[in-house]
Design a protein around this nucleic acid. Structure first.
Lengths: 247, 247
DNA sequence: CGTTATTTGTGCGTATGTATT
DNA sequence: AAATACATACGCACAAATAAC
């Protein structure tokens, strides 16, 4: 089996710089190296450096000023949650905790099986809440095709009620499928808090909450996970910065 | 005063193709011309064509398959609203109508003046509903700094109560400022429908609705418009397709 | 206030790789 | 196997914005 992720130069460089920024290499608003310097350090052409930078700009983690240089976007300007890419969804585990409300189990569920495009009505499901600090801000129901649930059946972070950890379900799946997750379709709407979620989010049932449905797919377009989340608007808002022409 | 938008080749080409697609030139999923063909037709290099295509891909209106070609994304797959760029917000006027609920007028409003970073508490405001077909799906309150309101004081589409048209406020501002709008910050949350909005959206007051706040800024970062919209979740949901690495 | 150096932005040419037909 | 079409990568030149002098 060939490597799923070809070692494309500009993507490798983007990955490197992305993690350097995450590690605080360029904290306190220090400038990143110039295109010329990067091109020399990593032995790639300046065009390749530019291609990598383009991705980082559109991820919103750096900004560039002609004639001045390239700077990391300050943490506080990076908005509460951006979610402009699948990577950012996976990075959710970096600063939030997850607590299992209902461990991974089999269930018959016609509606959600349909959304996962399963031929049978059998699926696996679990529920969790996500906390920032010790404040719960999100209740999530996860639905998985049987073949995906098998991959995760040995993960005690998902199978033990009440267990706390810093994982994301999609991150676990992705690791076990060697980076095969390619896309997610996200739908945001408003709803009244269902009672099971209200109970955990310390709000009243029926109170307006953000409902976010995410359907993750692999490279073939097959759904691998459906996550339905209810966000407490007191502790969460979805922010995006829009630019004139997407970089 | 120099022209604000230099006639950059790749942007001009992107604009051209974008409107060709909107006009249905490539309907029924017909292929777009190849890079080579475009490069000849418009007398630009293939690299310039690629740069233009990159923008259109990231706007989600075309997709490309190596070895096959470039195709317009089908209308029904383009999601109800994408809003990945300022251009797309302006394009809202293409397939929706706007009805003035409260015409442009002066008002003293400390809170919203603060959000527009005004030194005084004087601002101008108007309210409108947006309709798709004849169904209202959105109630919007617009707040403007005095200098922007002046620009629009002669626009009867905004100053006459009950007037219907196909404009967007930001589109009008942009045209009068020669494309100076550079960014918008968008925040999405859930709220109970305020009574003034519920009345127009044919829903109950307090019913969960999506609240979207958008603050538009010019190239200097100065706010030029604040729009607070309430969307009926029955007729609207915010959808985004996320990819592994943003294109 | 211009001049100059630095740094990013735009545009083009070319070559090669990879996926599709 | 060959032709087609998009993807990656490198090189170069010049423009435009910024900063320092």
């Amino acid at each position: 089996m060939p490597d799923r992720v070809k070692s494309v130069a500009y993507r490798t460089l983007a990955d490197t710089i992305r993690s350097e920024i995450r590690n605080g290499q360029y904290a306190d608003g220090r400038k990143l190296p110039t295109e010329e310097q990067l091109s020399v350090s990593y032995s790639v052409s300046r065009q390749t450096v530019r291609r990598a930078m383009q991705d980082l700009v559109s991820e919103g983690i750096i900004y560039r000023v002609a004639g001045r240089g390239t700077y990391p976007v300050a943490e506080e300007d990076r908005y509460i949650r951006h979610f402009g890419s699948v990577e950012e969804l996976m990075a959710l585990s970096l600063d939030t905790e997850c607590e299992i409300v209902r461990p991974l189990q089999r269930r018959v569920d016609v509606e959600n099986a349909g959304r996962l495009r399963l031929h049978s009505d059998d699926l696996y499901t679990l529920a969790l809440i996500r906390l920032h600090g010790s404040v719960p801000f999100c209740y999530t129901s996860v639905f998985l095709p049987p073949r995906m649930a098998e991959l995760l059946s040995d993960v005690t972070d998902l199978t033990c009620q009440g267990r706390r950890s810093r994982v994301t379900v999609i991150g676990l799946i992705d690791a076990r499928m060697s980076r095969a997750i390619m896309a997610a379709e996200q739908s945001i709407t408003a709803a009244g808090a269902p009672s099971f979620a209200a109970e955990r989010l310390t709000c009243e049932p029926g109170q307006p909450v953000l409902r976010v449905d995410r359907l993750y797919s692999d490279e073939a377009g097959n759904p691998v996970e459906l996550a339905v989340s209810y966000f407490d608007p007191e502790h969460y808002s979805y922010r995006v910065k829009l630019r004139r022409s997407p970089a």
